[in-house]
């Protein structure tokens, strides 16, 4: 068991250049016929933030629009890869069925590829939005230094989440239909568009919402420079633990994946 586990980790490390490259290719392919290319990732987020910020800022009677734009912008930026990862994960193996059935490429390769794709898309969008937000509040540049652990936590979180959902989503095909509903609800029920206090008596639900916790820590570190190192490290170790658990489950289910697709 230990041996196969090490083999799996070695395989992931060994193929890192390949899945990173094929993930970049996916982004290239997606924007192949556009003149602005992957800049669209950032531009579309900025446009959404501007529209939603104006509407919801008015609805929630926001007093400080500058801060609200940052709050909403970073919230949406961080939410997007999480949501995309959840919604796309059940299709990972089905989309690559041909390669899985006819080559020696292991299923985990395609999970890594999808993960790399989400991370690359996030970083490209982040760069553009961040540059734009520097005009709103130049202090966020210094806050970047406080955010490293929370960025790592976000990336780890997305990785193990994708492993679990890709495995169970391939086996239980209904999940694919259910997940968009869940992500929509999660988006509306988590304090992303609004502040936690707006939940009133239900504010405690945010404390039990793991997605919001990952999102909150990164967002607060970026906007307010909150390091939250203790909780950041705690989440980091929890992420590592769950990541190993997800790889263990993967090892258990790996042989059967080919029969589900």
């Amino acid at each position: 068991m230990k041996n196969t586990f090490i083999k799996l980790l070695t395989y992931i490390v060994k193929t890192r250049r390949t899945f990173w490259f094929t993930a970049t290719s996916k982004t290239k392919a997606r924007y192949a016929r556009t003149s602005l290319g992957s800049f669209w990732l950032g531009i579309s987020t900025l446009f959404t933030v501007l529209c939603l910020g104006l509407v919801y800022g008015t609805v929630f009677n926001v007093s400080n629009f500058r801060e609200y734009f940052l709050y909403l912008g970073f919230g949406l930026l961080i939410w997007t890869p999480i949501c995309e990862a959840i919604n796309q994960a059940p299709l990972i193996f089905v989309k690559n069925a041909n390669s899985l059935k006819n080559s020696k490429i292991k299923p985990i390769f395609f999970v890594c590829q999808e993960w790399a794709f989400q991370i690359q898309s996030f970083l490209q969008a982040f760069l553009i939005v961040f540059l734009a937000f520097l005009f709103v509040d130049p202090n966020i540049l210094w806050n970047l230094g406080f955010s490293l652990i929370h960025f790592i936590n976000l990336f780890l979180f997305i990785f193990w989440l994708q492993i679990f959902i890709s495995l169970f989503g391939t086996k239980f095909t209904d999940l694919f239909q259910l997940l968009p509903v869940i992500t929509n609800l999660l988006f509306l029920l988590s304090p992303i568009l609004y502040q936690k206090k707006n939940l009133g008596g239900f504010a405690f639900t945010a404390d039990f919402n793991p997605i919001f916790q990952v999102l909150r820590l990164l967002r607060n570190s970026l906007i307010y420079g909150d390091l939250n190192i203790k909780i950041g490290l705690l989440i980091f170790f929890a992420n590592i633990l769950i990541l190993f658990l997800s790889l263990y489950v993967y090892r258990k289910m790996e042989k059967n994946i080919i029969f589900y697709i």
Partner: peptide, 10 residues
Amino acid sequence: QRSFIVEEEL
């Protein structure tokens, strides 16, 4: 294998 690893747009 009969198909390419990358998308057809590439």
